[in-house]
Amino acid sequence: MENPSNNSKVTRRRFMRDSVRSVLALGIGAVSGLLIGRSTKQNIVWQLDPEKCVQCGRCATDCVLDESAVKCVHAYDVCGYCELCGGYSKPDAHELDTAAENQLCPTGAIQRSFIEDPYFEYTINEKLCIGCAKCVKGCGSFGNGSLYLQVRHDRCVNCNDCAIARNCPGEAFSRMPSDRPYLLKGEQGLT
């Protein structure tokens, strides 16, 4: 009987890489190719470390922008493609289906599509995501932690004093060089 909590992250990643689902790991490339717009004026930008985030909800409420610059990102190569996705279904969902009343996301920003029995793929509709981290907590508690937050640099105006960073209880925010502006999970990430 095993305790994988002792495994290195490399081993855990290898596990997922070697699994059949990893052939579906396409989406993360889209994340690493994100545009860095206004914020590159300076050489440093704000980013949050998903390992320090405690999913407090302030990324949704404290950004100076009406629609937060923080969005949910999905590391497909870490995802288990689970039917019962802790990030997608409400804890008390009556059915594991796509009915609005069974979805955890308050804005319906996560799309679920059937791959093959019993695997489902989950995709974030960024236009709808408000960065509330509810799915991040659900996925981290019951799944593989493939859903996580990132400051999106095509939206962030790179405030001198980031309003979220000021109040972040996990002290997850720090300045990053603008040529390496993301802290990604999975194959293309650092963790």
């Binding site: 909800g57 302030r58 949704a60 409420t61 804890p91 008390d92 509810k134 907590k137 209880p169």
Partner: peptide, 17 residues
């Protein structure tokens, strides 16, 4: 709660389980 900061309107709540 905007100053007390303890309330999370988006809390993932599994306490009832």
């Amino acid at each position: 709660g905007r100053s007390g900061r303890d309330e999370n309107p988006f809390e993932y709540d599994v306490d009832s389980f």
